[in-house]
């Protein structure tokens, strides 16, 4: 790399000719563009929508925002439907992230020891998480179709008249969304676990083997504790994403039938757009979600730190 450069040892006159930039200035120069961009594009809108959450503003009403105090928030807290959507989102997050953890971790354990072609198989398994959620939604919708979709046929239900219409039934619609989410994101958990597993030093197992510890013991006492921090990070990421679940659900069910899959983000979207444009109320709801996400993340991070220390 250095051989292309003119002079690895600069002439002594150089520092005098060019004013030396101090480390302090340099670090400011390096950091501020990022901070300014983040403030302009993330923080300013964030405060703006905090302001809007205390108003009855509607983005299409041609009227200036009117201050309404905590009306939007009291309305949200008194709205049983919205609590139902929160509960639904929680259930979705729990089941979906749980399944992803089990499948992803299991896969990582299987792929941990390399074999011929394991590299290519890992990459193939990763493909779902690279795809656009919209495209994924579109495609699974087609696959779930009870007459010409392939899903029911694959699981052995070949009679379209009696096979379930996954997306059109309040009982199964949530499961359909979960199936797609698990399909798409188990690879992500796998990827994280795999990197955790690859970082476990071999000597731990060697020591265990000398002690003639059972594989079961090795798993509980070495593998799991060692992977736990990364596993928890994966769970944290996926939980946050589950609360933000939007494009996949919109693509699959639009929140329906009825409100069977009305996740909280879908609810925010339908309050904010979809002909309603209750900008103020949607902003308030979004803030409630943000607070919940931060609280959940904090609990996680604390647990995570405990696991690391312990």
């Amino acid at each position: 790399m250095l051989k292309n450069q003119a002079a690895p040892y600069p002439t002594s006159s150089q520092p005098q000719r060019r004013r030396q930039i101090s480390d302090r200035t340099l670090s400011q120069l390096f950091i501020w563009p990022t901070l300014i961009l983040l403030i302009a594009i993330n923080i300013v809108p964030l405060f703006y929508s905090l302001f809007l959450s205390f108003t009855n503003f509607s983005a299409i009403a041609n009227k200036p925002a009117e201050f309404v105090g905590f009306a939007n928030f009291t309305r949200i807290f008194n709205d049983e439907d919205i609590w139902g959507y929160f509960a639904l989102t929680g259930r979705y997050a729990l089941i979906s992230v749980g399944l992803q953890t089990v499948i992803g971790f299991g896969l990582a354990l299987l792929l941990r020891k390399k074999f011929r072609g394991s590299g290519i198989l890992t990459t193939l398994i990763l493909i779902p998480m690279m795809l656009s959620p919209v495209v994924v939604g579109l495609f699974w919708k087609l696959m779930f179709n009870p007459s010409y979709g392939i899903f029911n046929y694959l699981i052995g239900l070949t009679n379209p008249a009696t096979a379930p219409d996954w997306l059109a039934n309040s009982q199964t619609a949530l499961w359909a969304v979960i199936i797609v989410d698990v399909w798409m994101w188990s690879p992500f958990v796998m990827l994280l676990c795999l990197s955790g597993l690859s970082a476990i030093p071999d000597y731990l197992y060697e020591a265990a083997a000398i002690d003639r510890a059972s594989p079961w013991f090795q798993f509980w006492r070495i593998t799991l504790p060692q992977v736990a921090p990364l596993l928890l990070i994966a769970v944290l990421f996926r939980t946050i994403e589950a609360f933000k679940a939007f494009d996949l659900v919109m693509g699959l069910t639009g929140g329906g039938p009825g409100d069977a899959t009305q996740m909280i983000s879908v609810e925010i979207y339908s309050q904010a757009f979809l002909g309603q444009f209750r900008t103020g109320r949607a902003s308030a709801l979004a803030y409630v979600v943000l607070v919940i996400i931060i609280a959940v993340s904090n609990v996680y991070i604390r647990t995570l730190n405990k696991v690391r220390e312990g």
Binding site: A168, N169, S170, P257, A260, L274, Q276
Partner: peptide
Amino acid sequence: QFGELLEPAQTYLTGYVVGGE
């Protein structure tokens, strides 16, 4: 207000007709 009026109609109608709620 037609957009606001549509939303509950859409939700409860699909809930009953399609979802069987």
